[in-house]
């Protein structure tokens, strides 16, 4: 059975990189003794696939991973057993069965919501919150994109699906995400700083992911909105 598991990353664990998170999940599942499925061959590995990686320093309440199990307990019990092995900072919050043919959560990822807050003593917050609209409604928002080989200017405005102040202290943004078009909230804030004539100071902002979406019939749905709840244990599939 294939499960889509939603998880959160908070606190000091925001300093852990994507590859380390993967290894952390592998080990937690082994400690929990859950019947995870392995690939075949001489060096088998757990069949597990993560959605859009979260950069070091970012927190999130809506990360996703697809894990294939030979069989499983009820969803709640799976969550309990996994959480019993998790450190403070990472916990699993949803466990749903998805169709075997469903594309991986990484392939499905289309957009994500972020909340950007300001670290004290770096910037004057109002300078940003009061000017979100004029920033967004520019004809183009050009940034210099550096790759290993070249530098080119790109217009990121089509990739910003929504941006607005949230209260007096934060900025909410919905950005394209995934393997086709991916815009990082850091890039948006860098462009915003440029627009305001400030130097971009990466330490000035804190980034929190609120939700990750897939696109179905032109509509954005949370990655965890598909599939079904697992109220009863699921037995092994018959070959």
């Amino acid at each position: 059975m294939k499960a889509r598991v939603k998880w959160t990353k908070t606190g000091v664990l925001k300093f852990i990189g994507h590859l380390d998170v993967q290894r952390y999940f592998h080990k937690a599942i082994m400690r929990a003794g859950l019947p995870v499925s392995f690939s075949k061959g001489m060096s088998p590995h757990q069949i597990m696939s993560f959605a859009a990686p979260l950069g070091i320093g970012m927190t999130s309440e809506a990360e996703y991973v697809d894990i294939t199990f030979d069989w499983c307990y009820s969803g709640q019990e799976m969550l309990d057993r996994m959480n019993a092995q998790m450190n403070e900072g990472i916990s699993v919050t949803e466990f749903r069965q998805i169709d075997k043919k469903t594309k991986s959560c990484m392939a499905q990822t289309a957009a994500a919501d972020y909340l950007v807050t300001f670290r004290k003593a770096h910037y004057f917050v109002e300078a940003f919150t009061k000017r979100v609209e004029p920033f967004y409604f520019q004809e183009e928002i050009r940034i210099l994109k550096k790759t290993k080989r070249s530098e080119k200017e790109v217009d990121i405005s089509p990739m910003i699906l929504e941006i607005r102040p949230q209260g007096d202290e934060a900025i909410f943004m919905k950005l394209q995400a995934g393997s086709e078009q991916n815009l990082k909230p850091q890039t948006v804030m860098e462009a915003f700083c440029n627009y305001l004539g400030y130097d971009y100071d990466p330490a000035g902002f804190m980034y929190h992911r609120l939700e990750t979406y897939l696109k179905e019939d032109g509509k954005l749905l949370p990655l965890g909105a598909i599939g079904r709840e697992v109220t009863e244990p699921v037995g092994p599939e018959e070959e």
């Binding site: 000091v12 300093f15 990189g17 070091i56 450190n87 330490a203």
Partner: peptide
Amino acid sequence: TEELLLKIEKPVRYIGNEV
């Protein structure tokens, strides 16, 4: 500080909190 941890390589070397 968080600012410092974000500035250096592999900050996870310094936070402890392992299983």
